[in-house]
Nucleic acid binder design. Structure first.
Lengths: 332, 332
DNA sequence: TGTGTCTCTGTGAACGTTCACAGAGTCTGA
DNA sequence: TCAGACTCTGTGAACGTTCACAGAGACACA
């Protein structure tokens, strides 16, 4: 009934536990006879190594913790997370490592994360959507455990390596596209200025249109559809003659579309709308959104690769920035 | 530099490790003087218990593994997962347990999951979107480790406890709503018949319209938007005079909407469309979808509660089925 | 033949806990 | 006053690994 241990395998194979351990850990110096006997014994007994016992002596846990920094009440439908989780699970599995999830929604959560990592329960930390000025980040860095982020951690770009889509260049692509369509009064709805996407996408917009010119044509949103609606309403009020708007996320763009429709503006005839993300809503809005696709899968891969390199003691390049792509549909 | 152990705490507090351990594990029989000394020592040393060492002797891991049964290449945007992960993380954290993620996309993955659980690395298993006839399920049950599912595991309803939304009643609600609107030729686009949602939502539809009558007005989709488009096209071909369609998911409904629009049918004037899920696309389609909202958060909670009860050795009721809600927008 | 190197093996100690047990002290009630 | 119960404490053993070390045997080369 009890789970077989390395002793059982050793006994069944007629060798000592040392030899079994050596085989398990890929050491050389195991004779072929021993090897086949042990492999048979493992198969027969259904032995699987006890990671706790192993960790106890090796001081490595074989696991990585992924920390989501969103408040609990916010349901995240962000496909980022999904891709990230899958990618991490897959890449870790290749090394027989596992992924532990934690959420850092409030201070209690953050303390738990810090305690967990400080307790040595993870070989590495994967940070997602970490907020600017989060003290947890510094605490994690202090533990000395390798940590990386998906997307820059504002203010800690040099201490937390990260991989990200090239938000800035993406925004430039879209803005150039709007300009290329002959649009002259191009406004923008941005994300929150304490997120890397919020900042970089606005920067890209300003890169093309010029700092001062751009500044007057901007409204801020908070990534939600509702905020897109109201930001669009404010823009229409302030800049009634606008003929294009670059919206920093598809969800906000969906909101902007309904405001425009309610205001009787035709898209794209009267106003062109450019989104960002190429999320699932982009294809379902009416009209379908012209948007910027991020290489989510590659960002996820590079983020995990960064962490694994760090765990292996390497000094990987930082940051890893990956190109975006313009996806032209009907809205612009 | 080294991480403090229970010995260090004991020494700093002037007691033995036994006493520290007792305090840590909530045993009674610890004097107040000892208690305060130990608590101070813990704070001073920054001690945090080594779970590996603990697990080694207690034979409990303090972790639960969540298994996603989707192929790797399928990007899941399903908010189900997000809610589930957050809920599980939150509820487990209350017990100081952690959540390990695994993906069961192919046979290799499934073997890994089985090995992991058989190795005693988790106190419980949380199954998500498990497919009918998955041999992994039986292997997991064989380990004797508590396992529950979110949504029924087809063919294993009695061996794997589960919590789910009342898909069948939800489908009835929508169908009755369409009937109540005076629609007479009501068709349906269903999900795959090897998923509980696919089966139950069709059952509910048939409950209201009658088995034989319903059967002729059905096309199958695979939950994707594209499949919704083509299923709608097939329906229009077969049943040109339909005046309503119940679509078993919002994403497929979004596909159906574009097919209808392309065919020149007005929604809801010519054809009423009812969705299911109340996902984010439901609000962004044109017109916004009338749909069925599932109590995702409660389903997640009940699923985790089920698992925790099982881990505690209780025999919880099975299944837990939670009511859905009709959300009326413009499409029906 | 002797020396050194290489391959392979077994063994004791250690990792950091919990648990069972034994024992000391205090309190209660007959 | 004494027995018994209750409170509190420390200690040794065990959990299942890995690691360093010592040593045995085989082989090559001088």
């Amino acid at each position: 009934m009890k789970r077989p241990t390395i002793h059982d395998v050793a006994a069944a194979a007629g060798v000592s536990r040392g030899t079994v351990s050596r085989l398990l850990n890929g050491d050389r110096y195991v004779s072929t006879t021993a090897r086949v006997a042990i492999e048979r014994a493992i198969a027969e007994t259904g032995y699987v190594v006890n990671r706790n016992a192993r960790s106890l002596v090796t001081q490595r846990t074989g696991s990585v913790v992924m920390v989501l920094s969103e408040p609990h009440e916010k349901l995240f439908e962000d496909p980022n997370y999904s891709v990230m989780i899958r990618t991490a699970v897959r890449m870790l599995a290749e090394r027989d490592m596992s992924l532990v999830m934690m959420v850092a929604g409030d201070d209690g959560d953050r303390d738990r994360v810090i305690r967990y990592v400080r307790g040595g329960h993870a070989d590495g930390v994967l940070l997602l959507s970490t907020h600017a000025g989060d003290r947890m980040v510094d605490a994690l860095v202090d533990t000395g455990i390798p940590a990386v982020a998906q997307g820059a951690v504002i203010g800690r770009e040099n201490v937390i390596p990260y991989a990200a889509a090239d938000d800035r260049e993406g925004a430039r692509q879209m803005t150039r596209h709007l300009v290329g369509q002959g649009r002259r009064r191009i406004a923008a709805i941005t994300g929150p200025m304490d997120t890397p996407g919020g900042i970089q996408r606005l920067e890209g917009f300003a890169d093309v249109l010029g700092r001062k010119a751009a500044k007057r044509l901007i409204e801020h949103g908070d990534w939600t559809q509702l905020s897109g609606e109201s930001a669009m309403a404010r823009l229409l009020e302030r800049v009634p003659d606008l003929d294009a708007v670059f919206v920093a996320s598809d969800l906000m763009a969906a909101g902007a579309l309904s405001t425009l429709r309610a205001a009787g503006r035709r898209v794209p005839e009267d106003v062109a709308v450019g989104g960002f993300d190429d999320s699932s809503v982009a294809a379902t809005t009416h009209p379908p959104l012209t948007t910027i696709r991020q290489p989510l899968a590659r960002v996820a891969e590079e983020t995990v690769r960064l962490l694994l390199a760090l765990i292996d003691g390497e000094r990987p390049e930082n940051p890893v920035v990956l190109p975006t792509m313009l996806v032209v549909r009907d809205s612009a």
